[in-house]
Design a binder for these strands. Sequence first.
RNA 1: UGCCUGGUAGCUCAGUGGUAGAGCAGGUGACUGUUAAUCACUUGGUCGUAGGUUCGAUCCCUACCCGGGCAGCCA
Length: 465
Amino acid sequence: MPRTLVRDALNATAPSDAIFLQGWVRTRRDAKAFSFIELNDGSSLKGLQVIVDATLPDYPQVGRASTGASVEVQGRLVASKGQGQQWEVVAEKFTVLGEADATYPLQKKGHSLEFLREIAHLRPRSNLFGAVFRVRSRLAYAVHQFFQEKQFFYVHTPIITASDAEGAGEMFRVTTLPLGNPPKTEQGEVDHTQDFFGRKTFLTVSGQLEGEIFATALSNIYTFGPTFRAENSHTSRHAAEFWMIEPEIAFCDLAGDMALAEEFVKYLIRDAREHCAADLEFFSKFVDKELLTRLDFVLERPFQRCSYTDAIAILTQNGKTWEHPVAWGDNLQSEHERYLTEEHFKCPVTVYNYPRAIKAFYMRVNEGDAPGRQTVAAMDLLVPGIGEIIGGSQREERMELLKEGMALHHLSEKDYWWYLDLRRYGTVPHAGFGLGFERMLMFVTGVANIRDVIPFARTPGTAEF
RNA sequence: UGCCUGGUAGCUCAGUGGUAGAGCAGGUGACUGUUAAUCACUUGGUCGUAGGUUCGAUCCCUACCCGGGCAGCCA
């Protein structure tokens, strides 16, 4: 008999005389004449109640069906006699496949997130993490759906890269040279010409530069893959390995870029709201009471836009005192970003046109700025509770200005010869952004720590699983 | 990397300069169309590690290890 998923059984429209289920026991309640077993197979938040009558030949097995045990059940799907569920299964055959003894760490009551991180191999079996990873799967699908519907092409940019100075952060080195005794040059430095790739290589911090290659060929592309930052960050919103979505659009300016970013964020929220309703309600109940209100509010309301210069004016004219001073030319600090999105605008806000000096070399220089106030066409999308969720820009398509930017950042034109070629041959205005997938998940689920929205968190000092 | 905070039973936590307690989990029994079931009884701890102060340290001090938060860096 084919297996029925719990999710489908719960959504049944009619009873069934024959149904077969497999899954794990969440809890068991024994009565004198029968036992109740809540069966969960991960297909949905809610489990299915199974009744095993004491007269059943298989009944002795029920004693071994403790929380965490794997079981299979054959029986009848019937309307429940009790409150709390529409359907339940009356078992005719009941088998324990794998026991879970008293050392099984997951209990019926709530655990701390910190404890669950220590058992990352079992936490997907909890309500919370089951829900998180179902939403994660759905949103990954929605990412592709959004861009594919818009006829963007999915490009696989390399994980291993030789570009080492995009300004996105510290990088992990990739090498096969012996650690203790690497070959040296005459100058006594490690000789990377003898390394696997014949040069220094790293794990990528961004697929953007390679994305630009494809955008200037296929017009509209996106990447969606893992990226790596070797920053020693100890915060709830940084991980050393995370997934990023980076669209790159040819013949597009900053305004188009911002519009796409805002549409994308709303699309993902709407998709989760529609397809992960039960899981989101669970988060709203147990993780963040304001979640659904906030998500709906974000869907209904247009995102605000605010130039960097206006943002500085808002921050300096409201009479607040800041831990970090606010001055034109300085980066916006977390407290400033959070004030803008959480208190001033009270909704997602896109800040654009940042000072050139604090932004990356490839960002497009704006025209008509006041002297000493040179800006670039960069934008950050800020959301309440998290801060920056998207960073993007129009790219500098003019060769001379791009070279000038590289000089400002002390980058060698020789190392970026292929990137400069994109301007040398058929250059076009283009723009793109990066969305941190985990940060988006934090926003959609209300889960406050990035370690809890990624299956296996990689943070400084931690890579157990 | 800096600052802050925590480490006591399997889990969540309380507690005191005189070597420890609760709830849940586990065990036993009772009861019940139950649903984080309920009730009674019960097992369970070198109080993170190493030093120091003290007659005596889980408590005070120092170092280290580990967790968490904030900041910077960013997504």
